[in-house]
C-alpha cells in the first residue's frame, strides 16, 4: 500500500466517527414551539396536532404518551424531517429541521431492517451513506454488534431473527452513525411483555452509555415512567400537551422499581390523565342509560334463551 493511500485511510478513519464517550460533548437539544400540523384529506383538512411546545435537553430521555390518533407519530415524523409543520417550528440545536438526516436516528414501530441485507450490512448502512470505507465500517459494525450481544447473528438475514432481535438490530443500526438524537415511535409495541422489558433495559443501558437525547413515543404508561426523565401527556386529536410530568426515580433503575410506591403514585396520576383523553378519543363514556337497557335484556334472559 502506498503512503498516500494509507494516510487517506487514517484520515478517513479518524473523521468517520468519534469514539463512543466523546459524544457527551455534543448537543442534541430538541425544541418544538407552538407546533401545529394538518393533513390534507380528500374531504378537506385534518388537524392532527395543534399548539405543541416541548423541549428535550441534551442527554435527556423524554417520553410522549397519548391516546392513539393524537398525533404522536406526526410529531416524530416532523422531527425526523419527513413532514413540514403547518405552524410553529421544530428545531434541533437551534436549527430548523430541514429534511431527514443521520443526525437524528429513528426507530419505527414496524420492523424496518432491510430484508436483503445481513444484520451486519444493515448496521453498516448509515456508515456506508457517510462514505466510510468498507473495511472500517465492517470493523465498527462488528464492535457495535458485539456490544449489543448480536455478534453471532451478524451474517443472518433479518427474516431469521425474532421480533425483539430485529428491533435490537434496528436500534444498533440507528446508533451506528453516532446521532445526537434518537426518535422512537412505539418501538416495542409489537413485542411480548417479557421481551419488551428486556428491550427497555437494553435501551436504557445504551442511552446511558451514549448520552444522547431520546424522544420516545409510547402508549404504555409503565414503559414511559420506567424509561423517562420526563413524560409529556397529550390530549386526544387534535393533539396538544395536556401535562408534563417529571419522573424523579433514581438511576440506574432496576425492573423492581415498578413495585415502588413512588412509581405507583406516578402511574396513578398518569393513568387518570390518559383515561380522560382515551375516552375522548373513543367518542365519550358509554352511556349509563344504554347500560341500563342492556341490563334489562339480561334480566329478561333474552340472551340466555337465544344461546
Amino acid at each position: 500500500m502506498s503512503v498516500t493511500s494509507l494516510k487517506a485511510r487514517v484520515a478517513r478513519a479518524g473523521q468517520a466517527q468519534p469514539p463512543l464517550d466523546a459524544r457527551s460533548e455534543r448537543q442534541g437539544r430538541i425544541e418544538i414551539e407552538d407546533f401545529g400540523l394538518r393533513y390534507k384529506t380528500p374531504t378537506g383538512f385534518t388537524e392532527a396536532v395543534t399548539g405543541v411546545s416541548l423541549t428535550v435537553e441534551p442527554g435527556e430521555f423524554v417520553s410522549i404518551i397519548g391516546p392513539s390518533g393524537c398525533g404522536k407519530s406526526t410529531m416524530l415524523n416532523a422531527l425526523a424531517g419527513f413532514l413540514k409543520p403547518t405552524s410553529g417550528s421544530v428545531r434541533v440545536d437551534g436549527k430548523p429541521v430541514d429534511g431527514p438526516g443521520a443526525d437524528r436516528g429513528m426507530i419505527f414501530q414496524q420492523y424496518s431492517l432491510f430484508p436483503w441485507k445481513t444484520v451486519r450490512q444493515n448496521v453498516e448502512f448509515g456508515l456506508k451513506m457517510k462514505g466510510v470505507e468498507a473495511a472500517e465500517r465492517q470493523r465498527q459494525a462488528r464492535t457495535l454488534l458485539g456490544l449489543a450481544g448480536l455478534s453471532q447473528f451478524e451474517d443472518h438475514y433479518p427474516e431469521a431473527l425474532s421480533g425483539g432481535m430485529k428491533q435490537r438490530v434496528g436500534i444498533v443500526r440507528a446508533l451506528a452513525t453516532g446521532p445526537r438524537i434518537l426518535l422512537l415511535d412505539e418501538p416495542f409495541g409489537a413485542l411480548d411483555a417479557q421481551t419488551r422489558l428486556i428491550m427497555q433495559q437494553i435501551l436504557t443501558n445504551m442511552w446511558q452509555r451514549l448520552k444522547i437525547s431520546v424522544l420516545f413515543v409510547t402508549h404504555d404508561i409503565d414503559e414511559a415512567i420506567f424509561l423517562s426523565d420526563r413524560v409529556y401527556v397529550m390530549t386526544a386529536r387534535p393533539g396538544s400537551i395536556k401535562a408534563e410530568i417529571a419522573v424523579p426515580l433514581a438511576r440506574p433503575r432496576e425492573p423492581a422499581v415498578i413495585m415502588s410506591s413512588e412509581f405507583l403514585a406516578l402511574r396513578r396520576g398518569l393513568m387518570s390523565l390518559i383515561r380522560e383523553e382515551s375516552l375522548k378519543a373513543m367518542g365519550g363514556e358509554i352511556n349509563a342509560d344504554a347500560l341500563k337497557g342492556l341490563a334489562t335484556n339480561f334480566d329478561n334472559n333474552d340472551l340466555a334463551r337465544s344461546l
Partner: peptide
Amino acid sequence: VDPVLVRAARCLGAREAA
C-alpha cells in the same frame, strides 16, 4: 415497496440516488 424502509434509509443519511 414498503415505505417504512425508504424512510429508514433516509433517516440513515441516504440521498435520492442511494
